[in-house]
């Protein structure tokens, strides 16, 4: 299998400085926040690649860079063999057509003043192509009825709205769908409906998903391959079963231990130490060292490089 999406040393810095006048008066330096730091990964066609991490891990930023909504500060993004940084703009917008996105909040991702028919057909209408019957067909494909095309978004529940978002994402026949926390705003019983629908569509249409989530159970259910992010860096990557059977990075281990479990009545575990540090002034060396039980002197000073251990890629000095 060839990689449909390839990220090479992807980096993104955000300027979080105070306004110019404040900087001059208060003699403050420019400040940047490194949201994505040197991330390399490959997503084979037809697979589900999941990015997991807590807030500030850069997972949503990576999704938006791939979607072309945010520009990369460094590194390359290749979609279907086309380098989106250096290729001609026409070529880039052509490959971007093969890519769609599903957002987290189904209440904010549909224009409240548009009818569902127009919302779903937008990706096709914008190219000036015919949208005759398109919305109706897609609505039925995602488990709603064709008659719903005449309604407005506020007439639907959260789960139904997310189905509408999926229908819109499918309208332009994409190969890749970026799913940014697609079910975290939904209730459990509705979440399973949406996840099942996404699995079915993937099989039917041969889609590739870049699945972004903070929820380990959902990721474990959906993903083929999982990348764990911490403070913008990919600290561990492995096939799903490998990762869950044998997490190598201490951060991954901590995440697994801390996640609430249904079978863990009255579980008494030592809660993890500390919190995610400030991304504007990240710790030197390995970003996880202040919280890491395995940290030694080398972790304080040297940024660990990616190492391969079996099928796992891990960025840790001590992982084995």
């Amino acid at each position: 299998m060839t990689a449909l999406i390839r990220l090479e040393r992807l980096t993104r810095d955000f300027d979080v400085s105070k306004p110019w006048l404040n900087r001059v008066i208060e003699r403050l330096p420019r400040e940047t926040l490194r949201a994505v730091s040197d991330v390399s990964l490959e997503i084979p066609a037809g697979s589900v690649y999941a990015l997991v991490g807590e807030s500030g891990s850069g997972k949503s930023t990576i999704g938006r860079i791939v979607a072309g909504l945010v520009r990369a500060s460094g590194g390359t993004v290749e979609i279907d063999g086309v380098d989106t940084v250096s290729a001609a703009p026409a070529r880039v917008s052509e490959v971007r057509r093969e890519l769609q996105m599903i957002f987290q909040d189904p209440f904010a991702s549909l224009n409240p003043r548009w009818k569902v028919r127009r919302i779903i057909a937008e990706p096709v209408a914008v190219r000036g192509e015919s949208t005759e019957g398109l919305s109706e067909r897609l609505l039925e494909q995602v488990g709603l009825s064709a008659a719903d095309a005449n309604k407005y978004p506020h007439e639907f529940s959260g789960g139904q709205r997310q189905r509408i978002c999926i229908a819109r994402a499918l309208a332009s026949n994409p190969k890749i769908i970026i799913c940014d926390e697609p079910t975290s705003a939904l209730d459990v019983s509705v979440q399973s409906q949406v996840l099942n629908l996404m699995s079915d569509l993937r099989e039917e249409l041969g889609l590739t998903y870049l699945f972004i989530s903070h929820d380990l159970t959902v990721v474990q259910h959906m993903a083929d391959r999982i990348g764990v992010l911490y403070l913008g860096a990919l600290v561990e990557e492995a096939p799903r079963d490998r990762l869950f059977a044998e997490p190598k990075h201490p951060y991954t281990q901590m995440l697994f231990d801390a996640a609430p479990r249904m079978d863990a009545f009255g579980r008494e575990v030592e809660p993890p130490k500390g919190e995610i540090p400030d991304a504007i002034n990240p710790p030197p060396g390995c970003p996880y060292h202040p919280r890491c039980p395995m940290a030694t002197e080398v972790c304080w000073t040297e940024v660990p490089q990616t190492r391969h251990i079996g099928e796992t890629r891990v960025r840790c000095h001590h992982a084995e």
Binding site: L69, F103, A108, S109, N111, P123, V126, C165
Partner: peptide, 13 residues
């Protein structure tokens, strides 16, 4: 900043 505007940007509006 709402997602429906992002979605519109994504499809090339």
């Amino acid at each position: 900043s709402r997602d429906y505007v992002l979605a519109a940007r994504l499809v090339g509006q």
